[in-house]
Structures are given as structure tokens and as C-alpha cells.
Design a protein around this nucleic acid. Structure first.
Length: 304
DNA sequence: AAGACGAAAGTGGTTGA
DNA sequence: TCAACAACTTTCGTCTT
């Protein structure tokens, strides 16, 4: 387990830090503040190659975040042309020229796109695993010609959105939109298009994945945060979550938990952080109270 | 005066004929 | 391809703290 020499800047709590590797977050156990969202990955250095679990890759680490993956191909230039028939020769030249055009176009695009991706991803402080995955998906998209007719930036944004969700570090469309400057709807459209065309499966995101970040933004204590998580579990069991927007549910759970723990936040505050409206919070909130029998606790907490 | 509540109408996406 | 549909938003008037 990693040790942190830091103290929590918010509550001054000692080394009581919770390291959530999967989410790339370091959270203070005392106050729930997210200290560091982008972490060095101390885990296994050699990741499984693509979708072949168990098979470790060998040789130099190949990374998709460099535009040519550190490899690069070209049609040979040193073949002994004198031995080729004229026909084969011209074929050779045509191939080389064609390959050159295509690969330089793709590589130029990739180079730009990966730079943009880096910019957005560091703005959002995304963990490196997301960068990798996003770069991989983008590479596939360019090779399949899916970027044509769409702005490079919107595809980058859509791909990042997908990569975040696949790594269980979901960001809202609003957040990606703010970081990339691309319209929310546009991101959603390209996101759906790309995942459909590439056959990438993205599971519906789990409301719990949002709790740490929202709670931190609202400066809620760790107790409230874990209470929200418990409420969330109950909600799942009561089938209150399917078909609903995960951010709305997470927001409502936090809102209730905050009420119970006398850390009241207004619906507007929570709504802004979660990127939903007050109305949605109210609806989810009402369902939670009705179906989970939380009224007593909330009423009790009100008497202060 | 601010926050919470709920009704009503509008939006964009999904689904199923 | 179109219409029905569910979730969510916007807007607004009314109650509560």
C-alpha cells in the first residue's frame, strides 16, 4: 500500500487517506475531499493486451498515446528494383505512393487529435488508463474513416466520454463539454455513433462512481458520503435505479445523506454539481423517501 | 427572501410496429 | 419511417422556513 506524506489541506487530517486505485482518486477519510484525482498507477505495469486476458504483452511497451505507437510502417525503399519487371515496378511505386498518402493523412490527424485529447484529459485530470483507452478507440475510428464529416474535436470528446465510462471513472457530458468546448448534444451524438460503429460495449454507468467526486465538490464529510453509498445500494435493491439517469440518482442520494447528517445543501447546489435540475433531484428524492422508509431519519435530523 | 414543491408543457432519444 | 413513450428539462405559481 502506498504511503502519503501529505496532510489533508481541508481538514488537516493526518495520513488518513483512502486510495482508490480503480478511480485514480485519493480521498481524505475524514472529510471526503478528493486530494488527487490523477495518480501514478502503482499496479501491474504490463497491462493485458487488448481483449486477450492473461496474455501479457512482450517487448517494448507499445502505447497508443503516441501517434504512430512508436512503430510506424512504410513500404520499403530499398528493394532491388532492377530485378522487378516494369509492371511490378509501377505497381510498387503506386503502392508506396498510396500508402504514403493514406498513412501521412492518418498520422497527421492522429497527431493533432492526440494533442487535443491530452489537453482535454489533463484539464479533467483523467487517469492514464483512460488516456490509453481513448487513444486506442480514436485510432480505430480514424482507421475506419469514421472521423470524416465530423470535427476532430467532437470525436475526441466522444471518445473520451466512452473511455471514462469504460474505466468506471465516468464524467458527465457537461464536464466533457466544458473541457472540450463542444456542444453536449454533439458529443452525445458522436459518442453513440463511434461506439455503435466500432461495436464498443459501454455498460450503463453506476451512480456510485459519481459519489466521491460530487461529495468532494460539495464539501461533504466522508460519513455523509458513505451514507449516500448505502442509500444507493438500497435503491438498487428496490429497483429504483434502472432506467433512471445515474447522475440524478447519485445527486438525490447525496442530498438525502446530507440532510440526515445535518450537512444540508440546497437542491440547487447539488443539482449544479451533478449537472441535473432541481426537479430531477426532487423526483428521485421523493422516490427514495417513499420506497426506502427514510422519512423518520430525515424528520429526526430536521429537529436541529 | 430564499428554498422547496409540484404541475404543465417542451426536448431529444429509444423502441416497436 | 413514424408514432408512442419514458426520462429529463424549463418554466412558473404556490407553499414553507
Amino acid at each position: 500500500m502506498a504511503q502519503f506524506a501529505k496532510k489533508c489541506p481541508e481538514c488537516g487530517g493526518g495520513l488518513n487517506l483512502l486510495w482508490n486505485r480503480a478511480h485514480g482518486e485519493v480521498t481524505c477519510r475524514d472529510c471526503g475531499l478528493v486530494i488527487e484525482e490523477k495518480m501514478v498507477d502503482f499496479g501491474q505495469e504490463w497491462r493485458d493486451f487488448d481483449d486477450a486476458p492473461g496474455q501479457r504483452r512482450a517487448g517494448a511497451p507499445m502505447t497508443y498515446t503516441q501517434y504512430d505507437r512508436g512503430l510506424g510502417t512504410e513500404v520499403g525503399t530499398r528493394a532491388d528494383l532492377s530485378k522487378l519487371a516494369q509492371r511490378d515496378r509501377s505497381k510498387f511505386f503506386r503502392l508506396r505512393k498510396w500508402q504514403y498518402r493514406v498513412s501521412t493523412a492518418i498520422e497527421r490527424n492522429l497527431k493533432m487529435a492526440l494533442a487535443e485529447m491530452k489537453r482535454v484529459s489533463s484539464y479533467l485530470r483523467l487517469p492514464g488508463s483512460v488516456d490509453e483507452e481513448a487513444a486506442r478507440i480514436y485510432t480505430q475510428a480514424v482507421q475506419r474513416g469514421l472521423v470524416r464529416g465530423r470535427s476532430m474535436e467532437s470525436v475526441v470528446a466522444g471518445v473520451l466520454y466512452a473511455a471514462c465510462r469504460r474505466n468506471e471513472v465516468p464524467r458527465t457530458l457537461d464536464e466533457i463539454s466544458e473541457a472540450s468546448g463542444i456542444d453536449k448534444k454533439e458529443i452525445g451524438r458522436t459518442y453513440r455513433f463511434i461506439t455503435r460503429e466500432l461495436g464498443i460495449k459501454v455498460l450503463p454507468s453506476n451512480p456510485a462512481d459519481y459519489i466521491a467526486r460530487f461529495a468532494s465538490a460539495l464539501k461533504l464529510t466522508a460519513e455523509t458520503q458513505s451514507r449516500a453509498l448505502r442509500i444507493l445500494e438500497q435503491a438498487q435493491d428496490a429497483e429504483l435505479t434502472s432506467g433512471r439517469g445515474p447522475t440524478g440518482i447519485a445527486a438525490a442520494a447525496l442530498y438525502v445523506a446530507a440532510l440526515i447528517h445535518a450537512e444540508r445543501r440546497t437542491q440547487r447546489e447539488v443539482a449544479d454539481v451533478a449537472g441535473v435540475t432541481e426537479v430531477t433531484i426532487r423526483n428521485r428524492y421523493k422516490e427514495l423517501l417513499d420506497r426506502l422508509g427514510l422519512e423518520k431519519e430525515v424528520d429526526k435530523a430536521r429537529e436541529d
